[in-house]
Structures are given as structure tokens and as C-alpha cells.
């Protein structure tokens, strides 16, 4: 099969987007009953639930730390979330992404505020259409905020890709499959720092720099959607809380 055309004569992408255009994004906070905090996100065809349980006692007990809390993260995909049915159990990819997401979240969570306790973060991918790790961490941050876990910042993320030599924002699965590169980026915007960064493919130094700038600009918009989702969850009249 010959490689499909990814950028048309008008410079538009396979789904009609401009190179610097995000897919439609929907976020909702507080969607699950039994977690301490939860969120749901849709980015194009990507759909993810994130749930947080804790802080609670550490299991198993020997992993307990006397001076700070323990963060666990599990990134997991439903078998039917991908084109070819994913076998049950955790794949190597899921184990790697769980680690990457946990480390990114550890940079903002104030672990020292819950010593001898642990917080579990569960990212459940219901449908994967590219950008699941970035959408996943965006939703996980909202779930942590919903659970009242102290954090220095809320993480926002997107991916930059390269298709037919053009840098494009928020690549979908098709572009990821046939394109030249995929660079997921997560930042703590208020801290102006990167918390997750990977590259899968080939990019020049200049492209990496420009790609980061594109991601940062997009992340401002993603952040607004996160803030809006949190405000919708907690619309509160001040008089409502007077004791």
C-alpha cells in the first residue's frame, strides 16, 4: 500500500485541520462515583477516564515513606480502544507510559504534604485515536485537582508531529502511523517547565524548537478548557459555604 497523502494542496491535513489546529476537546470533572476525584476527556476520537483514589494508607506497607507520599499511576487501554484488539493485561507500552505519566505528575504533586500515604491515579483509555498519553495526563491532572491533592500546578499536554515535512499540532492516529515523527509534550504552564517529553521519529534541532513553541501555544488553550471544566464542577455561591 502506498503512503497516503497527509497534507493536501491547500496545506490542510487528513481531517481538514490546519497544521496548528487542535481537534475538538471536551472535558468534564467529577464523572465517577467511587473515586476521590475523576475526569473524562475527549480529544477528537480519543476518549479517556481518569480517576484518583487517596491519599490513603500505603499497601503494601513496606513501600511507605516516612517523609512523603507515594504516587502510583496506571495507564491502561481497553481491549477495544484500538483497531487491532489489544490483548488483556498490561503491554510493555502501557507499563512504560504508566512510568512516564507518574514521573510527570510527581513533579507537581506536593508529596511531602501526605507522608506515609499513597495516591493512586488510574488512566483508562476507552478509545485511542492518537495523543492518549497527553490527553491522559491532562485528564489525570484534573482528577487530582478534583481529589483535592495539593499540587504546584495543573499539567496540560499535547503532541506535535511531523507529516510530509510539516510540523502539525495534536496529531491523530492516522498521522502518527504514516507521519515522520511524534513528540508528546506536557508542561506545567505556571512553572514554565516541561514535565513530559518524548520523541518518536526524526526531527531537526530547529524543528524540535519550533515544535515546542507550537505545543506551548496550544497548551494555553488546553489550560483554558481545563480551568473551565473545574469551574463548571465547582460553581459555588460564597454564601453556600458559610458555617
Amino acid at each position: 500500500m502506498s503512503k497516503p497523502k497527509l497534507i493536501d494542496e491547500n496545506g490542510l491535513r487528513v481531517d481538514g485541520r490546519r497544521p496548528d489546529e487542535l481537534r475538538p476537546i471536551k472535558m468534564e470533572v467529577g464523572v465517577l462515583e467511587k473515586t476521590d476525584g475523576s475526569a473524562y476527556i475527549e480529544v477528537g476520537g480519543t476518549r479517556i477516564y481518569a480517576g484518583v483514589i487517596g491519599p490513603r494508607e500505603v499497601h503494601p506497607k513496606h513501600l511507605e515513606l516516612p517523609d512523603r507520599g507515594v504516587l502510583n499511576c496506571r495507564y491502561h487501554m481497553a481491549s477495544f480502544s484500538v483497531d487491532e484488539r489489544k490483548p488483556l493485561g498490561m503491554t510493555r507500552r502501557e507499563i512504560e507510559l504508566s512510568k512516564i505519566l507518574r514521573e510527570a505528575l510527581e513533579t507537581v504533586v506536593l508529596l511531602e504534604e501526605f507522608p506515609r500515604m499513597m495516591v493512586d491515579i488510574f488512566v483508562e483509555v476507552i478509545q485511542a485515536d492518537g495523543g492518549t498519553r497527553t490527553a491522559g495526563i491532562t485528564a489525570a491532572s484534573l482528577a487530582l485537582a478534583d481529589a483535592g491533592i495539593p499540587m504546584t500546578d495543573i499539567i496540560s499536554a499535547t503532541a506535535v508531529g511531523k507529516v510530509e515535512g510539516t510540523l502539525v499540532l495534536d496529531i491523530n492516529e492516522f498521522e502518527d502511523k504514516y507521519g515522520e515523527a511524534d513528540m508528546p509534550v506536557a508542561v506545567a504552564p505556571q512553572l514554565n517547565s516541561i514535565v513530559l517529553l518524548q520523541l518518536n521519529g526524526r526531527m531537526t534541532v530547529e524543528e524540535v524548537e519550533r515544535g515546542l513553541e507550537m505545543a506551548q501555544a496550544a497548551i494555553k488553550k488546553i489550560r483554558e478548557i481545563q480551568v473551565d471544566a473545574l469551574k463548571r464542577r465547582y460553581r459555588v455561591e460564597p454564601e453556600g459555604l458559610e458555617a
Partner: peptide
Amino acid sequence: RVVDKADGSALVSLGKTKILTGIKVE
């Protein structure tokens, strides 16, 4: 039909119990 990538899917709640089933055909 809540998951396009599945050949069949349904999200069901029974009170607050919620279950998602997806079917893949090979």
C-alpha cells in the same frame, strides 16, 4: 455505540453501577 473503534459497544448504568462493554470481531 459509544466506542467507534469497537464493532459493538454499550455503556450501561444500573443505579450508580456503570459498565462499559466493547466487542471486537476478528
